[in-house]
Design a protein around this nucleic acid. Structure first.
Lengths: 143, 143
DNA sequence: ATGCAAATGCAAATCGTTTGCAACTGGAAA
DNA sequence: TTTCCAGTTGCAAACGATTTGCATTTGCAT
């Protein structure tokens, strides 16, 4: 089964429906996103995109990521001390654990934490618009 | 009681003990920090410092904040979409709620959340080095 | 007082990201 | 299927936050 090709077609369809033009560079980026399992930054996306469309420019990568973010197709994360990194928006909410040594990102979700957030915000008299919850750590050494 | 003057003297003493030279610009910045109740960024610190020492430069502000961070006297926070903001390290650990409309920072602490973090990291096989937990919201409108 | 490593101000460099602009291109309409 | 033009592109220059090189001062131990 070609899951990635399906994803790509769905991306294009949803965007077309919103009146977004599917251009050559955009198709290249959508293709990359539909096969990405990690959290690449703009430069990495640019590198991967060059392999598909050698005429693409870094500014177009940035412009396209902005567009996709606005359309809700991707999420942008600004982890500590590095460039923004992106991931497909599909899937339910999760937070991130960043491996300090490798830069790897592990996703996790805790309903308890979500509840606590709401509780805290409510107690302080605020409505949460969004939050950032990131753990930075290293793989526990076996003892 | 002159709490701020005392804080200033303590800052200087601790730094001297670590072999740090107390220069004019550094004294100005320490003075500002000891009276700051908010979370100013470098430019704001620079502005306030100019009032005390009109010859101070922005690079010295940055260099001093780096120094103070290394010495554990202050903490640096990179809230979403803005310059780094600083606060005195004194006091126990807390997280932040950022008022989206005003930029105000409210501090809070939840032992439950700290526990949950450790639990999650442990389950994923990681040791937490540090974390970032920020709520972004706006004041709840009275209904 | 003296000496010198450490700290400073300035300007230029850096990094990630955005923008102005002239040239190009989807894709709707004819 | 060709025409058309607003939307999109690549490029280079601009950007904001922060860092750095360097020649000049300045703490502060002697």
């Amino acid at each position: 089964m070609d899951n990635e090709a399906r994803k790509l077609r769905e991306y294009e369809q949803r965007l077309r429906d919103e009146g977004v033009r599917i251009t050559r560079p955009r198709r290249a980026i959508l293709q990359i996103l539909s096969q990405a399992a990690d959290h690449p930054d703009a430069m990495e996306l640019f590198r991967r995109a060059l392999a598909i469309d050698p005429t693409i420019s870094l500014s177009t990568v940035y412009r396209t990521m902005k567009l996709l973010e606005d359309k809700g197709e991707i999420q942008r994360h600004a982890f500590a001390g590095g460039p923004a990194r992106f991931e497909q928006a599909a899937g339910e909410h999760h937070d991130h654990l960043i491996d300090i040594d490798t830069g790897d990102v592990i996703e996790f979700h805790s309903e308890r934490i979500e509840q606590l957030q709401d509780e805290i915000a409510h107690r302080l008299g605020y409505d949460i618009v969004h939050h950032r919850f990131e753990l930075y750590g290293c793989r526990r050494k076996r003892k």
